[in-house]
Each structure stands twice: as structure tokens, then as C-alpha cells.
Simulated assay, not measured.
Amino acid sequence: MSALRSVVVGTGSSLPERAVTNAMLAERVETSDEWIVQRTGIRQRFLAGEHETTSVLGTRAAQAALDAAGLGPEAIDLVICATSTPDHTFPATATQIQAALGITQGAAFDLQAVCAGFVFAVSTADKFLTTGAAKRALVIGAETFSRILDWEDRTTCVLFGDGAGAIVLEAREDGERGVLSASLRSDGRHREKLYVDGGPGSTGTTGHLRMEGKEVFRFAVGQVTDVIVDAFEKAGLSADDLDWFVPHQANRRIIEASADKLGIAREKIVLTVDQHGNTSAASIPLALDVAARDGRIRPGDLVMIEAIGGGFSWGAALIRW
């Protein structure tokens, strides 16, 4: 009997109805399309409407992933939602998605590692599946970051968007496909570089996102490649073996600089930051769904996912599709 592997059997995504271009933002804050594109690569983002909550977007993405997998709610016994913008302080957004989908068995919980949340969630689900604690997991990244932005701060409000993505992972005795390795790290000493200045246990308010952009850029390019190298070493593979690099979609310059540093060819990068902006924990599953549905990512391909989020928290995982 071969060991259990967590195999991707379906992907899905959901975006709010309203797309907002850089030119539209320039009517609201002092900025320009040229300034945003040059520094970030972002051309538009989607912003959630009043009734498009994190759980609503997450439910749509999860349903699309279930449909792609050809599965119903009775097949899922684990739901993990990576989010920093839950509908409520409690209960967990994952439980709201679970109920909306008609899933009545198993566990559902949220995971908070900001932009690295989806990588952390995949690694967590993998532990449940490969130990036999669950058979099939919905792993979701869903965010409505527009709710926590300071719309007077042009250095941050132009960067982020809303959306959700999801994958279905299934425990299989598969010697080739599935999650091959993961590497996770956190260092809470960097809190002041990227954080939200509020919370129920401190200010009793939601707060707004605050970021030292240059410091985040420097750390993202200079430090977080350690988890990528570690994930490759754990799997006995290298950048030469990689088919697709699907990083957190925060900034095109960060993505390309990281790939160059690791020797990953730019034609292997899946880029969606231009269309979605930075959707935090949703960015990787959104990009995975785009690339899977347009035929770029195919069964047997070696895919690397990687992200850094506030905290700092960062991680990488290798998946044989």
C-alpha cells in the first residue's frame, strides 16, 4: 500500500461584480494608471458590493471547485477558509460556507496568516488528509480587503482587491500526484511593517491596513526564498523541474525579482496581479483556477505556490497536479 497523498481534484474562483480600473481610482484618490502600473503591475481590481461578503465569495468559489471535481456536499469532511476579513468575529467564515453548501459533516474552521493564508491552509489540510483524519477537503482563500482599507491612503488603497478561490483536495494512494512538500515560517518581530491598526481585543474596532511598502518589498525579495528552497529540497527537486510558479499576486516586481533570484524562468510564472490586484489569501487559488481552466496547468505538472503575509508569515508548497 502506497502512502496517502493530497491530490487536487477541482478548482474554483469568484470575483465581485464590480471591476475598478486604475483610471477609475484616479477619480477618487491622487494617483494615475501610469504610477500604479509602473510600481505594481496592477491595472484593475474587483471591489465587493454591500452584499458580497467574504463568505458569499468563498461559497461561490467553493461551489465552483466542487462542480469541477464532480462532487456534492456529502463528499467533503473538512473545510478550511484562509481569510483576514471574516464576516464576523465569530463564528468562523468557514462554517458559514459549510452551511451554505449543505455540508453537515466534518470540521470547518478559519486560518489566519494574511496573504500566506492559503499556503498555510493547504499544508494544514494536507496533514489531515495524509494521516487519514479526513478524506476530502475544501481549501478556500477568500477576502474583502476593501473593507479594511484607508481610502485616503493612496499608497495602500490602490494595491488591494476582493475575491475568492478554492481547491478540493482528496486523499489518494497516489505515488506521483498531490502535495509533495511544504515549508512554513513566521517572524512576529516584523508586525509594524504590515498590520491592521485595530481589533476586537485591542481597540474594539476593525481598523485599517497599514504598510511600510519599501520594507515589505525588501523582505519579500531578500528573505522569503528560504521556504521555496526548503520545499524543493524536501521533495528532492529543483527549479529546473518546475512547470509553473504560482506566487502570491501582490506586486509584479516582487514576483519577477523572486523568480529571477531562484532561477525560475519568467515564462513559468502565472501572473494575475494585473487583473485582480492583491487579494491576499485569495490570490493564489484565484491564479490556480485561471491557469487550470485555460489549460496551462495540466495533470502531472509540477506547481510551486508561495506567499508572504503580515506578521511576517510566509510559506511555499510543491504540488504535482
Results as ranks from 00 to 15, higher is better:
F109R: 00
S146Y: 07
G198H: 07
K193E: 10
A64I: 00
E233S: 15
F219Y: 15
V158H: 10
C115K: 06
G178Y: 02
I297F: 12
A23K: 12
F217G: 12
D241M: 10
Q98E: 04
G10C: 10
D289N: 14
A3C: 04
L57V: 01
T59L: 01
V139H: 01
N278S: 11
F145A: 13
D274A: 14
I228T: 10
A307L: 11
A92G: 07
Y195M: 06
E176K: 12
F90C: 12
Q105A: 14
D187I: 03
S123C: 06
G178F: 01
E233Q: 15
T95I: 09
E170V: 01
L111V: 11
I254T: 00
A317H: 02
L159N: 09
R298V: 13
T31A: 12
D77V: 06
T83W: 14
A220G: 09
Q223R: 12
Q98P: 03
R177M: 13
L288M: 11
G311Y: 12
P299A: 14
R172L: 14
G300R: 06
V20I: 14
I255N: 02
A164Q: 03
T203I: 10
A265L: 14
T205I: 12
F232P: 10
G49Q: 02
A316M: 04
T203L: 07
A259V: 10
F245Q: 01
Q275M: 03
H208M: 01
D67S: 15
A108Q: 04
I97V: 15
A239C: 05
E233W: 08
W314E: 05
V56L: 09
A235Q: 02
V37P: 06
V221G: 05
E233A: 15
V122Y: 04
E212P: 00
A281I: 08
D294E: 15
V246T: 00
D241L: 11
Q275L: 05
L57T: 00
R293I: 13
F128S: 08
S6N: 05
A26V: 07
K135E: 14
G12P: 07
E52N: 00
T53M: 02
A61Q: 03
G311W: 09
E176L: 09
L242D: 04
T155H: 12
M24G: 06
T95A: 13
S14M: 04
K135T: 15
K135F: 00
G207C: 07
G198E: 05
V196F: 06
A259G: 02
G236L: 05
I254G: 01
L47Y: 11
Q96L: 15
E34V: 12
D67I: 11
G132C: 08
D230V: 02
A62T: 12
A92F: 00
L78Y: 05
G106Q: 02
D150A: 13
E173M: 10
W244R: 04
L180E: 00
D153Y: 09
P299T: 13
L149F: 09
I305T: 01
G263L: 13
Q96Y: 03
G263E: 13
A134V: 11
D87L: 08
L159V: 08
T21M: 07
A108F: 02
C115F: 07
G49A: 01
R172V: 11
Q63W: 14
E176W: 01
A107P: 03
I319S: 01
